[in-house]
C-alpha cells in the first residue's frame, strides 16, 4: 500500500508534514551532512532580520530536565548575506524553504518579506512574533493581539506566498491571536514557540544563562504544546503547524491527532540530525499498520 504523506498549508503543498524548525537547522548547510534535505517536508531558516545580529553573549544554552533553555538572541547573518550566500545553497540541495523573519518594527517585517518575495527558493514565510530572548524583537508584539493582527495584515499585503505566524505560548489564550491571524489573511499558525524559563547555579546564585531567562524546548514542553494546538484546533479554523518536544514519529502522530496539519521538529535536530527522515519512515509504517491511505486524515482526528 502506498501512503500519501502530503499536506497543504495554504497554497503550499508539502511532500510530507515534517518541517525542521527555525533556529535548529541554521541555513541548512551543516545539517545536510547528516540528512537529505530534499526528502524533508520543509525547512524553516534561522530567523532573518534586516541587519545582521550578533546575538547574546555566552552562556546561551543550558540543559534542564528533558529539555533545554536557550537564549541565542536571534543571532543571524542579516538579509543581504542570506540572499547572497545562503539561498544558493538551499536551492542547490532542492529543499522546500520557509523563511523565518524577525523584526523590531512592522515596517521591518514588511521590508524583509518584500526583499525575499521574488526568490523562488523561498516558498513561504514564517513570521516570528514571539522570540522570548530579545527585548525589542518579537515578544512585545507576540503578547499584543492587535499588533499580531497588524503584522499579519501588512505582511499578507506584501506577498502572495503563504504567511505563517509563529505563536508564543506565553499568553493567556493562544486561540485569540490565531483568530486574528485568520481574519487578517494569514495562512497558518505555527505553535508553539519556546516557553520562558530560567535556571540558577546554586553555588554562585547566578542565572545559568547570560540573558537570565531563556526559551524552554524539548520533550519537557510537549504536553503544553499539545494543549495549545488542541485549543487552537477547537476554536479556529486555520491550519496549525504543531511544535514542541517532538522526538519521534509517535510524538508527531500525537500532534496531528491534536489538530496539526504539519509539525516542526527542533531540539531533536541537535541530538539526531537525521530525526526528520526517521520520523517520515515511522509515519509511513504507522499508516500502513493502521490502514491509513492519506496521512492528512489524522489532522484533528481526536475523539473527545
Amino acid at each position: 500500500m502506498s501512503v500519501d504523506l502530503s499536506v497543504n498549508i495554504g497554497n503550499l503543498k508539502l511532500q510530507n508534514p515534517v518541517i525542521l524548525a527555525s533556529g535548529t537547522v541554521g541555513y541548512g548547510n551543516e545539517i545536510s551532512n547528516f540528512t537529505d534535505l530534499s526528502k524533508i517536508g520543509a525547512i524553516v531558516t534561522k530567523s532573518i532580520s534586516l541587519k545582521p545580529r550578533k546575538g547574546n553573549p555566552p552562556q546561551r544554552i543550558v540543559e534542564t530536565p528533558s529539555g533545554m533553555l536557550n537564549a541565542i538572541g536571534l543571532a543571524n547573518v542579516g538579509l543581504e548575506v542570506f540572499i547572497n550566500e545562503k539561498i544558493p545553497f538551499l536551492r542547490e540541495v532542492n529543499s522546500t524553504v520557509i523563511c523565518n523573519i524577525a523584526a523590531s518594527t512592522i515596517e521591518e517585517y514588511v521590508e524583509c518579506t518584500k526583499a525575499l518575495n521574488d526568490h523562488d527558493t523561498i516558498k513561504a514565510f514564517e513570521i516570528n512574533v514571539s522570540c522570548p530572548n530579545v527585548k525589542e524583537g518579537g515578544l512585545t508584539f507576540g503578547n499584543d493581539t492587535n499588533a499580531v493582527g497588524r503584522i499579519t495584515e501588512k505582511v499578507r499585503a506584501a506577498t502572495g506566498k503563504p504567511v505563517i505566524i509563529k505563536r508564543t505560548p506565553n499568553v493567556a489564550t493562544i486561540s485569540e491571536s490565531a483568530k486574528v491571524v485568520k481574519q487578517e489573511g494569514g495562512d497558518a499558525v505555527s505553535a508553539i514557540n519556546t516557553l520562558v524559563g530560567t535556571a540558577f547555579n546554586i553555588r554562585t546564585r547566578k542565572p545559568k544563562i547570560f540573558n537570565v531567562t531563556g526559551g524552554l524546548s524539548g520533550p519537557a514542553i510537549k504536553p503544553v504544546a499539545l494543549a495549545k494546538v488542541l485549543e487552537i484546533s477547537r476554536n479556529v479554523e486555520i491550519p496549525i503547524i504543531g511544535i514542541g518536544g517532538i522526538v519521534d514519529w509517535s510524538d508527531a502522530v500525537e500532534f496531528m491527532i491534536a489538530g496539526s496539519t504539519a509539525f516542526q521538529i527542533g531540539t531533536i535536530n541537535f541530538i539526531n540530525p537525521n530525526a526528520g527522515l526517521e520520523i517520515i519512515e515511522g509515519l509511513e509504517k504507522y499508516c500502513e499498520e493502521t490502514s491509513i491511505s492519506k496521512l492528512s486524515e489524522l489532522t484533528a482526528s481526536y475523539q473527545i
Binding site: 535548529t24 537547522v25 541554521g26 551543516e30 534561522k46 536557550n70 541565542i72 535536530n269 541537535f270 541530538i271
Partner: peptide, 9 residues
C-alpha cells in the same frame, strides 16, 4: 547543544 554549528549555542 549540537556541536556542529546549528544551535548557535
Amino acid at each position: 547543544a549540537c556541536g556542529f554549528g546549528i544551535c548557535q549555542g
